[in-house]
């Protein structure tokens, strides 16, 4: 069980680094989808052998939503908006990857100081969860396109989910599903918002929204 869980965590962290270095929106969406599918498997490994129906349902629901539904919604938003790649982010792709390593190091430091409850996955997953959360925040702050920012929000949520699932001895199913539903609504709204930004401004550069005024002379 342990090596499988470790491999899962390493793949999630590698996904974070790849997200920071990729400029293609299709590639970014696929990376987020792969990360979502991996996260779906986390609850199966986190609680040892006892796979109750509850856990199986959570795993399938999370994997489906994060790995299939969100990517399809975002891909549709991308197609409607007619954009292919992120050009000229605020922080370059190489520098972003270096920042990703710094984020990872910071996460290890933070995780070491936290009183983490003993669990089969908690020790390895806590730094990965923090790294994923911070990577999502970094993507939101440093990218120009609204779609990449929505992806950053998804990555941030992935990190929170990873933290919750691996830490909690017994996270109530309802809470996790409620969070998933929230994210679902958020992505839905973002898809619509992206479409409207595109219709109003002809591009998804959120930088242009500073030009918004309610009065034009």
């Amino acid at each position: 069980m342990r090596p499988a869980a470790e491999l899962l965590i390493v793949l999630i962290v590698l996904g974070n680094l790849a997200l920071l270095g990729s400029s293609r929106l299709t590639g970014l969406i696929r990376l987020v989808a792969a990360q979502g599918l991996l996260l779906g498997a986390v609850p199966l490994l986190a609680r040892g052998q006892a796979w109750t129906a509850e856990i199986l349902f959570l795993a399938v629901a999370a994997g489906l939503l994060k790995g299939v539904v969100f990517p399809v919604l975002l891909e549709r938003a991308m197609r409607d908006a007619g954009i292919r790649r992120e050009v000229e982010p605020f922080v370059g792709f190489s520098l972003s990857q270096v920042a990703g390593v710094a984020i990872l190091a910071a996460s290890f430091v933070i995780a070491r100081r936290l009183p983490v409850p003993p669990g089969p996955l908690a020790r390895a997953a806590t730094p990965a969860a923090f790294a994923t959360i911070l990577t999502g925040l970094f993507l939101i702050v440093t990218r120009r396109k609204a779609l990449t920012q929505a992806l950053g929000y998804l990555v941030l949520e992935n990190g929170i989910y990873l933290f919750g699932v691996s830490i909690g001895q017994r996270v109530p199913l309802v809470v996790e599903l409620g969070v998933l539903l929230d994210v679902f609504v958020a992505v839905f709204v973002m898809g619509i918002a992206i479409f409207h930004i595109r219709r109003e401004f002809d591009h998804l550069d959120v930088d242009r929204m500073t030009e918004l005024t309610d009065w034009t002379p």
Partner: peptide, 14 residues
């Protein structure tokens, strides 16, 4: 090319 090598560096740091 620098991007490839920086990527290798991040892998090594990980």
């Amino acid at each position: 090319v620098p991007q490839l090598l920086v990527g290798a560096g991040t892998l090594a740091a990980l």
